[in-house]
Every structure is written in C-alpha cells, then in structure tokens.
Design a protein around this nucleic acid. Structure first.
Lengths: 322, 322
DNA sequence: CTGAAAGCGCTTACAG
DNA sequence: CTGAAAGCGCTTACAG
C-alpha cells in the first residue's frame, strides 16, 4: 500500500496540512513538529507523489516543447538536454506538450514554447509570434529569451588549459556550418590565444561535420597533410571522440604526443575525455524559468550558463622536442 | 483559462461523468450524446489533462526504470526507447521512478522494474529477486519477462533482401562482445543464407565495436584486406553509418558497387539508409504491459515484437561482373 | 504555529 | 443510458 500524506499525519499526530508544510519547507512550522514529521517520513520511506503535487500546485501554464527539423534528435547532447528538461518540468509542476514539427493544426493552448536552435528558426519564431506565444530558445538569438552555455568562455578555457600545459602548436576542429555556438567556441579559443603572452603560438582551424565521423576525418586529414599539432580542441565531444579514433589509427599517442579536449562534458561518451562541461541541468532550469517569466511578467532575458573544465586522461603536457 | 471537463459538460448539457465516459470510449453512452459531446470538445480544442487522469485512474503501481552500467545511455537507440517508455507510462497513467545505479538505498516502494540488457544483469536480477520485485527486461534473458525485437527474423530479412537483389558476396559487421541480440541477428542472417537455394554464396563476418567508428574501421579494414563484398549487413545502424563513411572514403559507390543495410530503423541517423526497423513504440508498450501483468497476475512472459524492412537508397541490385 | 475544508481535473462505483 | 458524489494525494487560503 502506498504511503500517503495521511499516513504520515496519522503517525505524527498532526494534520495533513502540517505535513504538507514540512514537505514544502514552509517557515510556519514549529521546529519540534517539523522534526518528528521528518522522522516519520524517513522511517516510512515516504516520498511525495509528484503527480498529486502537480495537480494541486501547478501554475496553470502549459509549455510547448518544439523540436525542429535541423536538429539532431538522436545526438547524445540532445538526449541529455531533453531528459533534463522533462525532469525540470516535472519538478516545477508544469504541464507540457510535445509539439509536432508543424504546429498549425495544434489547437491546445500553450503559454510559451521551448525550442532549440535549428535551421528554420526565423519562420518558426514568426509563427509563434503570430499566435502571440512567447518563445524561449536553448541557444542564441537576438530579441527573444535565450539560454546557452558560455561558449566563448569555454573556448577560452580550452586554450588557456592547453597553453598552460605547454602546447603551442594547436588545432581546432569545428563545424563547416556557421552555427553561432560553434563560432563562439572558436572565437573564444582564438581570443585567448591572441591575448596570451606566449611566443610562437600556431593555430590551425579545420571545418567539417560535427559528428564522430566528421572529427575522425578532419583529424586524419590534417595529420596526413603534415600538420603536427600537440594540442587539439574540438567543438564537440563527438568530434573529439572521432579525433581520438583517428589518432589511434594513426598510431599517435594520447596524451603522450598530442592532447585532446572536447566540448559538452559528455564524459560517458569516451571515458577519460577532457572536455569543457556544460551544466545541462542548469540550462534546463533556466529555460523553464525564462519561459515562466515570459508568461507571467512578459520579460525577455538572455542567460548564459557557466561552463567548467573537466580534466581527463586525454590531456598532458606538451612533449619537449629535443 | 484552461478548458476542463466541467466546461465541456456545461456546453454539452450533460454531467461531467458523461463527458468522462465519452473521453474513455465507454460503451454506455447514447450515440447522440456522444456525438454532441465530441463536437463540443472539438470546437473548444479540449484535451484531457493527463495529470488529473493519472491521479484518478492509476493502477496504484509504481514502476522503476533501472538503467545499468553497461548501457550506452547516449546512444540513439537508447534515446528513442527511453522517450517511448516515458510516453507509454504517461499514457498508461502509471507512476514511475528513475532508479539510480545502486538501488540499495532506495526505500520507495516499486512494484516492478523495467531494465535493459546490460553487463551486470545477473547480480541486478538477484538483487531485485531479493526484494521480491518482478523485473521486465528489454532484451533477452531466460526466466524473466522479456520483450525484444525479432532479431533473428530481422537478420533473415536482411539476407533475403540482399539475395533477392542478386548479391552473393556478403559481409556482416557485428559486435565483438557476445551480446545475445547481436548473435541472433547474425544467426538469422546466416541461417537464411544457408537455407537459400542460390549457389555460390560467400559470407564473411567481422567483429568490432558497435559504434559508428567501429563500423568505419571494420569496413575499411575488410576492404583493405582485399575482401570485396557487394552486400553488407550491419548489426546496428550506427555501424552502418560508419561503414558508409568508410566506403565513401574508399571511393566505393553505394549502391552502385555495394549495398548496405543496417538494423534498428534509425533512418534519421543517415537519410536513405536501408535498415531492419524495430517498432520501438510497440516494444515500450509491451514492456509496460508485461510489467503490469507481472504485478497483477504474477506472470512471466516473453514477447517478440516484429520488425520490418525499411528500404533505402543504400540498397541496389548487385553489380554484374562482366 | 496548526487544523479543517475546499480545490486541482478527472474517474468510477452506485443509484436510478 | 445518465447524474450525483466520493475519491486519487497533495496544497493553500482561512480561521483560530
């Protein structure tokens, strides 16, 4: 039998209202009461029912999640952000609907829409504007609420780290498409190099597909063409995995001969991969917050979520050339 | 303002109970009544609130979803099955909790656990058995409830198709690990070849990693070693994508010189890829059904979900060697 | 600080 | 075939 708030109330000798107050950390509960209620909850392994919670608490708002055509819905990153978003929405006791590609036949009310950066972004924003529905973008775009990782800062972190390890001949693998986030990562990387006081820095940038295979090919071709970097920064972890594959096939030791650092923080993708880690739960949290703020206060805000450098076995000091 | 059952009842001139009955397709509603209620619902764009629905309908059961260590939680396939599972659980108005790797500290009640085939499967099953919680596996395992795609049948389909297109020199890329599903796909593939009446069939099987990079390397190496298949079957679509990459790098025309077919049906992964498609929503549906049956009727059943052949631009008739 | 009561949106015996 | 009412598990004004 499921343990409910009623059972806890009974065993604690208080009312259900009071139990609810301790669950929600309301300040108006006597310390002692709170204590005994918590003890009973713990003893019975009680966990509040999220569904009941949502039904009674919810904001009355419905969020649409709109996945677009240009997106790679099967990518590891998308996978993670999606799961984080749903979890966040559940925690916030908010309703949501998953929007189909074409929203014109959707008649359900939605108070705001969460979307990702994708190809037909402008038309999509226009169609939402026509409906009077605010949009929140996970990515960058002028004029609407956005949340994105600190791509520029992350690029800087990557080069700072490589420089600190003594690397001077650098390679950056990035996307052929002019995606904003990829440009910012590259710009941050270059800016930090330029501002550094180290002499004799070389940096080559090559462009291709943002996939494992793309990284593989770029790395292999750069090496075959004779470029011999010791520090490699990849615009995505997927590309980094590909680059590592190419280096393995080429017989190049990592991190003995070259160091590799990716971006996204998907360490599960390749155990030990050094990366600039995104805070995906924070991004999901901000996205939902921005949506709620857009609905309630009609605000448009742009948020940048900090990134952190994740060390890994693919990073080492630059080899000293005798 | 949100449209509720009450509004529909009001505008239809019936009680909320009746509206509920038409929502749930109960037979005990007069045809005419049903008709007008549906019309009102349509006019108002009404959609029943899934949360309220769950709260009042639910089975009182809680399903655990237990993701294991050996699983690739970032793989496209996992991504899809996960989303399908959550959708199914929501539709079935069932509660669920996402279990951490180590369940020993979890005190929440759970009536059944959904899990995937992973490395430490036996210990995990034992720990569930110790708690008296039935398990449902997405995959194969003797003695417990399982649901899996028809791997053997899918393997057969792949070879039947390649044979029908005139291919006689075949290559199968599969996993180095002895995973049951991979073995079954290979066995089906081989069985169909052996049973076919075509003369002069050659088939080579190579093993490596089940990733894009794995497929790439296997294909490249097989080709470099001089094997010249015209029909290639890959144990996963990811491997197929890798194989296609290698063929492109080798300058081999697809489907002019060789045909490629994958397994899983992740056509988004590579537009035009021919594949043996899994019915992921059906698998998710069966998984939840088996779990509910295990709880209520204490049954253990094994379900096999049919697969279908998805044609694609990577498939063509075998080249005629002059 | 706490209890009693109404409410979230829906379903389902129970009567009729 | 249909309505009135209780219930799912929780929250939150409203009194006290």
């Amino acid at each position: 039998m499921k343990i409910t708030i009623g059972e806890i109330a009974l065993q604690s000798g208080v009312s259900k209202g009071t139990v609810s107050r301790v669950i929600n950390n309301k300040p108006t509960v006597a310390k002692k009461t709170r204590h005994t209620v918590l003890a009973v909850m713990k003893r019975l392994g009680y966990v509040p029912d999220p569904v009941a919670r949502e039904l009674s608490m919810r904001t009355k708002h419905t969020l649409g999640i709109w996945v677009g055509a240009g997106e790679n819905k099967l990518s590891p990153y998308f996978n993670l952000i999606w799961r984080a978003l749903l979890r966040e929405i559940q925690v916030r006791a908010t309703q949501f609907i998953e929007l189909p590609m074409d929203i014109s036949p959707v008649s359900q009310r939605m108070d705001a829409v969460l979307m990702f950066h994708c190809t037909e972004i402008d038309q999509r924003l226009a169609s939402l504007a026509a409906r009077g529905v605010p949009a929140v973008l996970i990515g960058h775009h002028p004029g609407i609420s956005c949340v994105a990782p600190d791509d520029t800062g992350g690029g800087r972190m990557a080069s700072a780290r490589l420089l600190a390890l003594g690397h001077r001949r650098l390679l950056h693998l990035t996307l052929a498409d002019d995606l904003q986030w990829a440009c910012e990562r590259a710009n941050g990387f270059k800016a930090e190099l330029e501002e550094s006081k180290f002499p004799g820095i070389e940096c080559v940038i090559v462009r291709g597909q943002g996939s494992v295979l793309g990284g593989y090919r770029l790395m292999r071709d750069a090496w075959r063409q004779g470029y011999r970097p010791t520090g490699i920064f990849c615009a995505t972890d997927e590309m980094a995995v590909g680059a590592l594959g190419a280096l393995a096939d080429l017989g190049v030791a990592v991190p003995g001969e070259v160091s590799v650092i990716g971006f996204d923080g998907l360490v599960e993708l390749y155990p030990g991969l050094a990366s600039v880690g995104q805070d995906i739960p924070a991004i999901a949290h901000e996205a939902v917050s921005l949506a709620l703020a857009a609905i309630e206060k009609n605000t448009v805000r742009q948020k940048v979520v900090p990134v952190t450098l994740i060390d890994g076995a693919t990073l080492g000091t630059a080899p000293t050339i005798p």
